[in-house]
Every structure is written in C-alpha cells, then in structure tokens.
C-alpha cells in the first residue's frame, strides 16, 4: 500500500515517535503530500515553541488555521489559548473570562493539575475537526510516552468521573477524534536498535487502546551503502577511514535487518526513507514519499 493510499483511508493522523526521530518534519512532509489532493491542516501544540512553524516558515502563530501553501493550512494551539477558548463556551463575557484567566489560583491549578492542559488542547482540536472543512488533518504529537497519555485521556477520565463536563468532552473525543474509522497513528522511527524496539513497544501499546490504530511506520534516515566488497585506491592506507567505511557498510546491513524484523512483527506498512541532509528542504522528502 502506498502512503497516498493510507492518507486516503482516514481523516486525522497522529504523528508520533521517540524524541528526535523527525515527527515534525514528517508531519509537514506527509501533510504537504496530502495537500496535493486534499484540503489539509497540519498542527502542533508545544508550549511556546512551534517546530512546525520553523519548518513551514510561517509568519505568525495562531490557533485559527492560517494558509501556508496551496491547500495547506497550519494551526498552533497554545495551552493558555485552549483554556480561553474553552471558557468562552460557558462564560459569555470577555471581561469575566479575562478575570478568570488572571486568577492566580486558577492558573496554579491549571498548571499543576496533570493533563488539564492536554484535555483542553483536545477540546480545541475537536473544534478544528468539527467546525472546519479540512479533508486531512496531521497532528504533530509529543513523543510516544506523552502521546500515549494523550490517547488515554478518555480512559483516565472515565476512571475518575461519572458525568460532568470532562465526560462530555471525552465522549466527543471518542466520537470525532479517537476512533478507528476516523483517525490513525503514524509512527516515525529511526533505524536504530533502541529506537526500533521502542517503536515496537509503543506500537503494541497504542494498539492495545481500543480506539487507536497504527497504520504506518516511517523509518527515517536510512543509510544506503551498496554492498561492494573491497576498497578503492588511496583508501587502503587509511586505517581510520576504512574503519569508518566498514562501520557504515555494517550499519546499513544491520538497519536493513532491523527494518525487516519490524515489518515481520507488526504487519503494518513500513516506509523507508534515506538520510537527507538536515538542511535539505522538506520538498526532497515529499517527492521521495510520493514515489513510495
């Protein structure tokens, strides 16, 4: 199955993986690929920092989607803005909302209470999902462990509450955001033993959540060294360089083994992308993905 086929199957994609694997880069790259056929939104919600903005070179940050390309939109959710947005649904007066947001105890509570921010970020996400006509939405999630807690908000909430606003939100979440026919996870990995085994572990853990589904794993920054044997002239005297050369040849081989193992054990579509220099424009990756 091609990446485009997978994009065709769902509306919402949660892009996650171990820290440093390229989640943001691939949120943009896959998002851009999707935007060739669909009206697409990419978004992130890191506190006060938007890697997506850096990659997209967007001029400003706003929670309301802004246009960043043909058919491509970008939104950045700031947790404090999510709280404001949430209160708006209940308190009509901007004046009262401002008073509330400046209440020190409320701030302390909101900051100290685990998952409160995450829940309200999801509330804003619901707004983007329900009130806009984006055909595809790509979400740059936090690293796997934190992402899992995001996915489990409904479970955690139902363990604590029986009714009330939180339950109302998580029911909406299950209806529009977390459901196997609407959304899926795309895991981003590197061809490294530790990263692959963590990817495998989280693949199992995500799948164990009944409403979460993993559709693809991207293995990024693959070394591609042709198996040649022998060395070329001038290299034979350079012991250190030979060691480096052999290291790459061995790594390339090992990476191949790791990926085929991952393929065997998960059964989902796995996309291998070669190493692109850090400064290379995302477009290079997009055109590579198109041919996959």
């Amino acid at each position: 199955m091609s990446l485009m086929d997978i994009i065709g199957k769902r509306r919402i994609f949660f892009v996650t993986g171990k820290g440093g694997t390229g989640k943001s880069t691939y949120t943009v790259a896959i998002g851009r690929l999707a935007s060739e056929h669909y009206k697409t939104l990419v978004l992130d919600f890191d506190n006060k920092r938007s890697t997506l903005r850096e990659i997209l070179r967007a001029s400003s940050l706003s929670a309301e989607p802004q246009r960043v390309g043909e058919n491509l939109y970008f939104s950045h959710i700031e947790p404090d803005e999510a709280l404001r947005y949430y209160l708006k649904d209940f308190i009509r007066s901007d004046f009262l909302i401002n008073i509330s947001l400046n209440l020190k105890p409320l701030k302390s509570f909101y900051n100290a209470l685990p998952s409160a921010k995450e829940m309200l970020v999801c509330y804003f996400l619901l707004h983007l999902v329900k009130d806009f006509d984006f055909e595809k939405i790509f979400i740059d999630m936090p690293a796997s462990g934190h992402a899992e807690l995001f996915f489990k908000i409904p479970i955690a909430a139902k363990g604590i509450f029986n009714k009330g606003p939180v339950i109302a939100i998580v029911n909406e979440m299950n209806k529009h955001l977390y459901s196997r026919d609407r959304s899926c996870v795309i895991q981003i990995a590197l061809p490294d033993e530790v990263v692959i085994s963590e990817t495998m572990e989280f693949y199992e853990r995500f799948k164990a959540i009944e409403y979460i589904d993993v559709q693809a794993i991207v293995v990024n920054k693959r070394y591609r060294i042709a198996n040649t044997g022998g060395i070329c002239e001038g290299l034979e005297k350079e012991e250190e360089l030979i060691r480096l050369y052999n290291y790459y040849a061995r790594k390339s081989q090992e990476e191949g083994d790791l990926v085929s193992d991952l393929r065997k054990r998960t059964g989902v579509s796995i996309f291998e992308v070669p190493f692109f220099p850090v400064r290379a424009p995302v477009d290079n990756i997009v055109s590579f993905l198109k041919d996959l």
């Binding site: 060294i225 290299l235 050369y245 220099p277």
Partner: peptide, 20 residues
C-alpha cells in the same frame, strides 16, 4: 580519495558517507 576513486559503487558509498 572519494574524487579519485575509480570504482563507481565505492565512490557512491564514500560520497554518501561523507555527506552524512
């Protein structure tokens, strides 16, 4: 060494390694 390498496979490999 990479520039002078005559074996095209090895040359490509070296080029890749150096780029990385």
């Amino acid at each position: 060494i990479m520039t002078n390498c005559k074996n095209s496979d090895i040359k490509a490999n070296l080029e890749f390694i150096l780029a990385v």
